[in-house]
Design a protein around this nucleic acid. Structure first.
Lengths: 225, 225
DNA sequence: CGGACAATTGATTATGCTCAATACTGGTGG
DNA sequence: CCACCAGTATTGAGCATAATCAATTGTCCG
């Protein structure tokens, strides 16, 4: 990829959402909002699909655990190029900040619930485990971004999504093609073509754009080795 | 990049270095090898250039802090493609493992000294800080691998190296072109051509292959935004 | 000095991007 | 209920970037 002459879509303005996030943090404290012994602040917050949880550049506050739905973590360059760092599913933790500033956006890509923790109130061991999970997934994604071709990236992605939805017949994607592309370091066109090819080869079946049946998981596994 | 028909060089055999690492761990315990209060085991270990510290697939033991020299962390695919995850310089910590198994190789790319810590003996807060540093650098590298073109990747790399050697006139590279290529998700040829172009444009000056003077840091900064 | 490895340079190719047009989908209002 | 619209996805054609293949030069050690 070369630096684009024109912005993707009309590149989102990087704006602080400090007020927004502060509002959200106090809003809709759930059933478990009362404090329980030495546990973290179980402030359950609900975000509608598309809602911004925090912005790149915001002063960091809480860390969050997803309890339902899905969250997209993405970093935006000045010219509009975007890298999706991770999709966070239930059980996953996000919001670790560098020097007190969030270095990426966190947005709800489905209606979702998260639990906000004050980092100080979480046991250090829990924080460490969460940070290590993020680290390992970042490291394996570096492999995908650095050394796999488009077809292999899609195979990795589909297997990863399938693993997180074990039990379902079909993989339900909560993200758009643009999100997938920005996660895999590709363009929407390449993602679309790649999925089309996998379907033509009988490896997957697209019930709809967001619902994919994996018919030959072993073929995907062979692609990523 | 597409899956290579032939291995890079003659792809390194993935072999367990359990015996080797065990040996190394007990060898050459340095001056600070005695235990000091509640501190970690300050077992200082020296590795010669090229030495293997641990292998991908090894049962995990200690975590390590680099005190001198440089360490390359790399992940190898079955067909020989390699992704360098990080170059660890003095002060940096490596060796966090997933499910008790190291998921990458750690090798000395210069003569170097590391301090081996038993993870249990390190304060959780220190582990967390080390893990978060690795996470943040992995995240920013995902941006490089996913969304920057070859010239931008080189600019990012040179600026990063320069930052770690603040004070020097020239950036001294401890790694080969192949290492740089595998770190940046490029080929050696592209790295070489890219550096050549930067030199032709007067942005850098190659005193030797491993010694680069940055004449126009601002140009590099503008490239990465 | 010679040999092995590392780095550079050149020519060609292919993968994935860009630009462009078309099809599909879900939600809204007549 | 259906037409419409906007956003999303797919498909097509041509091109550019970086990979591949190949040859040469440079450098470090013994």
């Amino acid at each position: 990829m070369s630096p684009p002459v024109l912005d993707r879509e009309t590149a989102m303005t990087i704006q602080s959402s400090r007020e927004f996030a502060a509002l959200a943090r106090t809003a809709k404290v759930g059933n478990d909002g009362h404090r329980v012994g030495p546990s973290p602040v179980n402030a359950v917050i609900h975000y509608d699909i598309g809602a911004l949880i925090f912005s790149q550049g915001d002063r960091a506050g809480n860390i969050f655990t997803v309890t339902s739905g899905a969250v997209r973590l993405s970093h935006l360059l000045a010219d509009g190029r975007r890298q999706v760092l991770a999709f966070c599913m239930p059980g996953e933790v996000f919001g670790f900040a560098q020097d007190g500033i969030y270095s990426f956006f966190a947005e709800a890509i489905e209606d979702c619930s998260v639990v906000a923790h004050s980092p100080q109130e979480v046991r250090a061991a829990d924080n460490l485990n969460a940070a290590l999970s993020s680290l390992f997934s970042a490291q394996s994604h570096m492999l995908v971004l650095g050394r796999q071709c488009a077809a292999e990236r899609l195979a990795s992605f589909l297997l990863d999504m399938a693993k997180r939805q074990r039990g379902r017949r079909c993989v339900e994607l909560s993200m758009s093609r643009a999100d997938i592309a920005d996660y895999l370091g590709l363009t929407v066109e390449t993602v679309s073509r790649g999925l089309g090819k996998l379907q033509k080869d009988g490896v997957i079946l697209l019930h709809s754009a967001r619902c994919i049946e994996i018919r030959e998981p072993q073929v995907l596994r062979d692609m990523v080795e």
